[in-house]
C-alpha cells in the first residue's frame, strides 16, 4: 500500500467518524467520492425538479380565477423557481471541483442524464389540479424535505431550512384553493374529486419505490448511511398517508383506492400498489408530459442564450 492510499483510508475513517457524531460537512471539506456523487445526484435532481416543477403549475398562473388567486399562485411558482435557485447553488458548489457549472446541469437535463422528479411529468388539466398540487404534492414534498432538514451536508440543510419555511405557505395556498372548491358548487367539488382521481397514482409514486426490488434502483440506502436523510421511501409514504388520508376524507373526497386501510396490527397503511411500470417509464422521460416539458425548458433556454452570451462578454 502506498502512502496516498493510507491517507485516503484515514480521511475516510475520519469522515465517517464526523458523520457518526453528527458533525456537519461543508462544501470545501474533504469528502469521499461516494458522498459527493450521492449529494450531486440528489441535490441537482432536487434543484432541477423545482425548475421543471414550475412548468406544470405556471400553466395555471394566467388562468387563476381571481386577482388574489393569480397573485397567490404566481408567488408560489416564483418560490419554486427560487427553490431551484437555492438548490442549484448548492449543487453547483459540489460540481465546481469537477470543472462544471449551471450550464452543465442544464445540458445534463436536456440530454436525459439528469432526471427531474416523477411528479412533474404529469399533465395539469384543471384549476383543481393547480390546487391539488399545492395541497398534496407540496404536502408530500414537505414530508421528504423536512426529513432532510438535519442533513449531514450543511449547505443542503441551510437551503432546506429556507425552502421548508416557504413550503408552509405553499401548503396553505393549496389548502385555500381546495377548501374553496370543496365547499363550493357541485361542479367545483367534482373538479377536486376528479383531480384527486387522476393524481392519486402520482402521489404514491412521489416517494419512490419501496426498495430496489420494485424498479431496479433506489438511492435511499446511501443517503441514509451518510445521514442525509432519516427515513426510507416507504416510511415517508406511510407518514404521508397517516397525515393526509384523514384530511382528504374529512372534506368529503373519496380516495380512488377501495382497498386502502390502516392495519392496526402492523400499524401500516395497506394500499393498492401503483403500476410501477408507469414509474419506470417516467424515469426514462417517457411520462405523459416528459418530452413537452423538456422541450419547453430547452426552447426557452436556447432562445435566451444570447442574453447570457451578451453579458458574460461584458467588462466590469
Amino acid at each position: 500500500m502506498t502512502a496516498d492510499v493510507l491517507l485516503e483510508k484515514d480521511l475516510q475513517a475520519q469522515f465517517e467518524e464526523r458523520i457518526a457524531r453528527g458533525d456537519k460537512i461543508e462544501a470545501d471539506d474533504w469528502m469521499p467520492e461516494e458522498y459527493r456523487l450521492a449529494l450531486i445526484k440528489l441535490i441537482s435532481m432536487h434543484g432541477i425538479s423545482e425548475i421543471m416543477g414550475a412548468l406544470p403549475e405556471k400553466e395555471w398562473v394566467p388562468k387563476a380565477p381571481t386577482l388574489y388567486r393569480k397573485l397567490g399562485i404566481m408567488a408560489k411558482v416564483q418560490d419554486e423557481m427560487g427553490h431551484g435557485q437555492l438548490l442549484l447553488r448548492v449543487a453547483e458548489d459540489l460540481i465546481k471541483p469537477l470543472g462544471k457549472n449551471r450550464e452543465d446541469l442544464m445540458q445534463d437535463l436536456f440530454a436525459g442524464r439528469l432526471k427531474f422528479h416523477n411528479v412533474f411529468h404529469m399533465a395539469t388539466k384543471s384549476w383543481g389540479d393547480a390546487g391539488l398540487i399545492g395541497w398534496l404534492v407540496d404536502g408530500a414534498a414537505i414530508i421528504t424535505q423536512t426529513n432532510m432538514l438535519n442533513a449531514s451536508y450543511a449547505p443542503y440543510a441551510r437551503a432546506l431550512q429556507r425552502i421548508c419555511a416557504e413550503e408552509v405557505f405553499h401548503a396553505q395556498h393549496g389548502e385555500a384553493i381546495i377548501l374553496a372548491l370543496a365547499e363550493g358548487t357541485p361542479e367545483q367539488k367534482e373538479m377536486v374529486q376528479d383531480a384527486l382521481n387522476r393524481w392519486w397514482e402520482a402521489l404514491l409514486f412521489f416517494f419512490g419505490p419501496p426498495s430496489s426490488d420494485t424498479t431496479g434502483s433506489t438511492k435511499q440506502d446511501i443517503t441514509i448511511k451518510y445521514k442525509i436523510r432519516i427515513n426510507t421511501n416507504e416510511e415517508l409514504r406511510q407518514g404521508f398517508l397517516s397525515k393526509y388520508v384523514p384530511r382528504i376524507k374529512s372534506i368529503g373526497l373519496t380516495i380512488p383506492d377501495p382497498t386502502l386501510r390502516f392495519d392496526e396490527e402492523t400499524e401500516k397503511w395497506i394500499y393498492q400498489q401503483p403500476n410501477w411500470e408507469n414509474f419506470k417509464k417516467i424515469q426514462r422521460n417517457e411520462g405523459p408530459k416528459s418530452q413537452e416539458r423538456l422541450k419547453l425548458r430547452r426552447t426557452s433556454y436556447d432562445d435566451n442564450a444570447w442574453v447570457r452570451e451578451a453579458l458574460s462578454a461584458r467588462i466590469g
Binding site: 425548475i51 394566467p62 411558482v77 435566451n304
Partner: peptide, 13 residues
Amino acid sequence: SEWLGLAPHIEED
C-alpha cells in the same frame, strides 16, 4: 405572468 419560469436566468425569473 406568462414569462414566469421562462426567463433567461433563474435568479432573474
